[in-house]
Nucleic acid binder design. Sequence first.
DNA 1: CTGAAAGCGCTTACAG
DNA 2: CTGAAAGCGCTTACAG
Lengths: 333, 333
Amino acid sequence: MASRAKATILDIAREAGVSKSTVSLVLQGSGLIRPETAVKVRKAIEDVGYFYNRGAANLRKAHSNVIGMVINDLTNPFFAELAVGMERVFQAAGVVPFIANTAENPVRQEEVLKSLMEQGVAGLIVSPARGTTPGAFRRIEAAGVPIVFTMRRLPESRIPVIAPDNHRGAVLATEHLIRRGHRRLAFFGGSSDLVVYQERLGGFLEACEALGIPSADRLIVEGETSRKGGMACLETALAAAQPPTAALCFNDAVAFGVILALRKRGLAEAEHYSPALTSVAVDTAGLGERAAHVMLKMIQSRTTRAEDHIGAVSLVVRESSGPDRSKQMGDAA
Amino acid sequence: MASRAKATILDIAREAGVSKSTVSLVLQGSGLIRPETAVKVRKAIEDVGYFYNRGAANLRKAHSNVIGMVINDLTNPFFAELAVGMERVFQAAGVVPFIANTAENPVRQEEVLKSLMEQGVAGLIVSPARGTTPGAFRRIEAAGVPIVFTMRRLPESRIPVIAPDNHRGAVLATEHLIRRGHRRLAFFGGSSDLVVYQERLGGFLEACEALGIPSADRLIVEGETSRKGGMACLETALAAAQPPTAALCFNDAVAFGVILALRKRGLAEAEHYSPALTSVAVDTAGLGERAAHVMLKMIQSRTTRAEDHIGAVSLVVRESSGPDRSKQMGDAA
DNA sequence: CTGAAAGCGCTTACAG
DNA sequence: CTGAAAGCGCTTACAG
């Protein structure tokens, strides 16, 4: 049973008593083959335990059916969602997505990209790691392999981007906080080396400006985009002479950290301080689907250029239980 | 700049003024090549923007450097952790892991496995989807490709398994609850078609038996392994004549659901009912590393057999704030 | 040290 | 409809 040497189309041909061209034609579902021949061949395929050798086929056909998904942090459920959306589309198109994780490490990213290229991917969907240098994709672009960025853009790059409207999301969330009566606002978490950060902070500042919150009443605390970072942000903010009464958090993790810290201080448990996690909703799986579609189109039309796509966002207001003067957390996912 | 046709070793050979054999030798780091020749070749590789074609190489060498990781639920951070551990080991060994998600769907799993086999993987690390049939891996085994199961085992399969000691974890957690003074215990979530469920429930029952909890005081509520499932379990339990005072939850998600439901009912907020999420700790990344090592060894020794590996577990007791008679949640991760 | 030749498993014209 | 032949990009003996 355990045949060590893998079967090839030659084995199938022998088993079925036809030539290997015929087998190849059957494999490709060609209409040129007589039905009973096809049946005979298919039976032989089963009998010899054959697995199609896509590498050999691609070598000859000079194109591949695998595309690489390079993700900066697979432990972030957000990216898992994104991957799920892409897979749906690719599956339907007969394309196999291989996922690789860079763990936010540009060196690892370099290796992963090289690997994927060596594997002969037809395209690359990438959420670039922090600190990716502008030239990181130069050789791949030169080789004519299409790339799509998701979630993050690189400064001064012409690679198309599929991402949510971070700026708009932050504007919506900030407006919400101000309308709820808050006058001293904070922006918690993230760091200015990320383009995403600039976009969200920009939205925050724009809304503050538009709705008359003076810059003296805005507190910006950079920090790790993690629970720990969120906790640190809160400590910093509470140490201020006039602590903010509401904050826009860079992402969910930061927001949870802030809430944990509040709870630890006994502030969140108290009746008058019930943080409602209002958040910016992004159709993540939808963005994944979109990215996949763009990629498919690029491959098909043999181009490395495409339009950017900025996904709509909306505000999800949750359990805003406290009175007007209650402090409250807003979170931009 | 954008050379559409990909460069081959022939282009390099031409550029460097050597034969393609020489280029191949340089690519493989052979010591047979004069240093200055190697330098010249390496420069040519840069100049023509070459990417090694691993598919062609593998075709000739008849072995590959990619292994497939087939995961049943990528959105579960647990599996992301596992993947991270494996990647660490594989990277060091020059092996490229490709991750594929089956979303707990046996049909999708079938497709993914086929794809990976067609891609010529050297081995497969699989966390099988629910409802996987015993024969699902027959052809792959017959082809001599090594498989390792992680986290879950299949009934009546001889494929090696790397998994945490679920039984022991449940025993530890249950003993803990009983020692805290609880006498009416529940087991929440999961369903009996999973081997993991049998293992955990078995541990729960064994501990109850050993420490004298009569079966009348044990409540077993099957349910979805999600927050929603956990919430439903709690409702069922509270409807009992004598509700349990503590529960062992199938996993984190169920436990969170239970806590949410308690909070909604106002039970968790009350002083006398502060659920402490005591949980069973598994070194997930460590299991990932272990699985990778086992796989590497199997590939190297050309076998499809290996010892099972059952990872140690430990109990993490957290914020057990209430008094002895406080109700409390234990969670087996 | 380096070159010419064969072959890995497939597909693709090209004959028959 | 089916077979013989060439070739995809590489590696591997085998000469030189």
